[in-house]
Amino acid sequence: MPQLSRRYIQMAFFNLIWGLTFGALLLYHKGVPLTPLLWRLLPLHIELMLVGWLLQFIMGIGFWIFPRFWRSRGNDTPVRWAFWLLNIGVWLAGLSGVFALPAAIFLAGRIFELASGALFVLYAWRRIKPPGTGEWGKKRGERATSGS
């Protein structure tokens, strides 16, 4: 498993723990009331579970197991950026709900998430390909020819 996948997956686990903890507190409070302030955690719980956990875990696994260009995963710079954008976006959007921050901050979080998703798709698109092809759909022989 490549280092970048491990980073995605471990951050997904981190978000899962927090998302589950907030969700468990909310559910506990539904059964045995603790404090109504807990309802403020709902947007953060949703953001962490849907984007911070599920989406991020899938992106990490996708980077690991999608078909490679022979042995290489190509230029992974967009995926490195996507990691930071996703996690800043998740916590920005989630915390803006908890602390009732201005809508612009919530929007910024969602734009970060969008940028992250777009970068990941831009990168991963070329790895959804038939076997035995490299970047831009070139066959192994074509690559050698173009290099000579």
Binding site: L16, L20, A24, L25, L26, Y28, G31
Partner: peptide, 18 residues
Amino acid sequence: LWGWAVAASAVLQWLAGL
């Protein structure tokens, strides 16, 4: 009773995640 059952379900799912 049902309130405590809901609370217990929260704890069980949380432990499963951990």
